[in-house]
Design a protein around this nucleic acid. Structure first.
Length: 300
RNA sequence: GGCGUCGUAGCUCAGAUGGUAGAGCAGAGGACUGAAAAUCCUUGUGUCACUGGUUCGAUUCCAGUCGAUGCCA
């Protein structure tokens, strides 16, 4: 009998509010292992209620990593996550042959599972400059510049999306090479195997869960949390569903009631975007979220 | 009760000197390798309240009916 000696990363993913936390905790207890979070907003320790960060009692003594490990003042990205999570995994695999990765940030999951190309981190001053160019001269100026620096990428980018244009320009300008020549989408080899499980629920049920959860967040003091953080609203971390709408309320632009219904609809749309991303991933085994025993059997 | 205004897409509303209508939001679909809970793209046929009249033709004009709303009594 051949034994696969490679350790295994079990990825539990799915749209927001589908119930990833409880499934992963149950699975972690079952396999007596720990959980790495792949949630680009639960990293931030100042944002708890608005990101539905699992509470200690929900974690049930299962070790969790990458939760509340960052301050909102720190910039972060998928590449750093790849590096840090990879280092952590190496440690965790010494004690366990299975480790669970759970979260809904598709880009971050990809970065850890298959790697992300080696490209320079964004430079603050350069990014500011590009933002200013966009503000003052419009998106056409970004396009024009990109067409000169990287005509290949120019042909394939979404020319209406300023963030794509700015990132490409950043890379071109800091490396002196065209972005397209560095962007290779190379699959990095990993010394562990990967089992991806996608949790799903009928859309109607998911929407109900989203609505219920938003109401609960409000009861738990989300507004108070938002008030505390409004002075940091220009930080990327706060460019997040929930906080944005409450900031509008605090500005006096909309009623609280309106803010709450906006949060619900924007969360629904977020869940939809997540699904269009995940549905493309052929590696994911889709499982009904409440079917815990089937999930256990998949992870044997 | 009298006078006026309004009744158009799930919601808020625009519009045609008469040739069967269009925006925003919601909804649906999609893209996306260092900001990703971000960012971006595509997508609008609905008895134009109802019933008659005028007209080649009415959702648009006229009359009545019903409903909403305002002012006066």
């Amino acid at each position: 009998m051949i034994i696969n000696e490679k350790p295994r990363l079990i990825v539990i993913t799915g749209p927001t509010a589908v119930g990833k936390t409880s499934v992963s905790v149950a699975l972690a207890k079952h396999l007596s292992t720990s959980i790495i979070s792949a949630d680009s907003r639960q990293f931030y320790r100042e944002m708890r209620i608005g990101t539905v960060t699992p509470k200690p009692e929900e974690m049930e003594n299962v070790p969790h990593y990458f939760i509340g490990n960052l301050s909102i003042k720190k910039d972060y990205n998928a590449s750093r996550f790849e590096e840090e999570a990879l280092n952590l995994l190496e440690e965790l695999f010494k004690k366990n042959s299975n480790v669970i990765l759970t979260g809904g940030s598709g880009l971050y999951i990809n970065a850890l599972c298959h790697g992300i190309d080696d490209l320079p981190d964004p430079d603050d001053t350069l990014r500011e400059e590009l933002k200013r160019l966009l503000r003052e001269e419009g998106i056409a100026a970004l396009r024009k510049k990109l067409k000169m620096l990287d005509p290949v990428y120019y042909e394939e980018v979404d020319l209406a999306n300023p963030k794509r244009l700015m990132r490409a320009l950043e890379v071109c300008l800091t490396t002196g090479k065209p972005y397209s020549s560095l962007r290779q989408h190379r699959h990095k080899e990993r010394d562990f195997t990967i089992l991806k499980i996608g949790l799903y629920r009928e859309r109607e049920i998911l929407n109900e869960r989203i609505n219920y959860r938003v109401d609960q967040m409000m009861e738990e003091g989300f507004l108070k949390e938002a008030k505390k953080l409004i002075r940091y609203r220009n930080l990327n971390a706060l460019n997040t569903v929930g906080y944005k709408e409450l900031f509008c309320y605090l500005d006096g632009d909309i009623t609280l009631e309106q803010a709450v219904t906006d949060i619900k609809t924007h969360t629904r749309r977020y869940a939809k975007r997540q699904m269009t991303w995940f549905l493309k991933d052929q590696e994911i085994h889709w499982v009904e979220a409440k079917n815990l025993s089937y999930i256990f059997s998949l992870c044997k």
